[in-house]
């Protein structure tokens, strides 16, 4: 992830969270915010809501983070474009947060709900997660979309639903690991709060260089 020196010189790490609509991206952020804050990290969030400002407002009202540390960027019906080909508004939003709340440790950028082909520009983020859920079907990892294959960390969420949708989570995880060439896969249940310590440990290690 080396970049030309002029490309970026912020102090904070920037982490993208992508994944299909409803997979649990916002739920994951809501779980991560208190855990990361408890470790003393200073945070901000950019959301790319697709049709409303609902995610930005949900986070602003949720009491997990100061509302002014959350900004929404409209995606103009192009959720992929604004994280990949043209992330300028997201970069500008992150830069402004950075200027306003310096020093920030981490800016989380939630994508507006993607399909399996979406990826984040490495000019926008240093590291990105892709969130899928078991209810989307256990064949998703085998479809090998760029999101599944290239993301630095793959989250398989809603494992609590597996029995209800007839999905073998262990097999899904194996399939995912097989197509990811050793990059991590973590199972989570954002409702009950399972697997999140592992996610935080990963972020702390890979992104925040905290341990």
């Amino acid at each position: 992830m080396t970049k030309p020196a002029h490309a970026r010189a912020p102090s904070s790490a920037r982490v993208g969270i992508g994944g299909p609509v409803g997979a649990g991206k916002t739920a994951l952020i809501e779980r991560l915010l208190p855990l990361l804050a408890a470790r003393g990290f200073s945070l901000a969030v950019v959301t790319n809501d697709l049709v409303t400002k609902e995610d930005a407002e949900r986070l602003q009202r949720g009491g997990l983070i100061a509302p002014e540390r959350v900004v929404g960027v409209e995606a103009g019906a192009c959720p992929h474009t604004v994280i990949r080909e043209d992330p300028t508004l997201n970069i500008e939003a992150a830069d402004l947060l950075e200027a306003k709340f310096a020093p920030l440790d981490l800016i989380v950028i939630e994508s507006g709900g993607d399909n399996l082909a979406s990826t984040f520009s490495l000019d926008l983020v240093d590291y990105w997660l892709f969130v899928i859920d078991v209810a989307g079907g256990d064949d998703i990892p085998r479809k090998k979309g760029p999101g599944i294959v290239q993301a630095d960390l793959l989250i398989i969420n809603k494992v609590d639903l597996a029995p209800h949708v007839g999905v073998d989570v262990a097999a899904m995880q194996r399939d995912a690991e097989a197509v990811r060439g050793g990059k991590p896969v973590i199972l989570t249940d954002c409702r009950a709060g399972i697997g999140l310590d592992q996610v935080v440990a990963r972020l702390a290690h890979d992104v925040l260089m905290a341990e």
Partner: peptide, 12 residues
Amino acid sequence: SFFPSGAVSFSW
């Protein structure tokens, strides 16, 4: 429009 100008987010 390949040039990243942020235009996609605006409908005016």
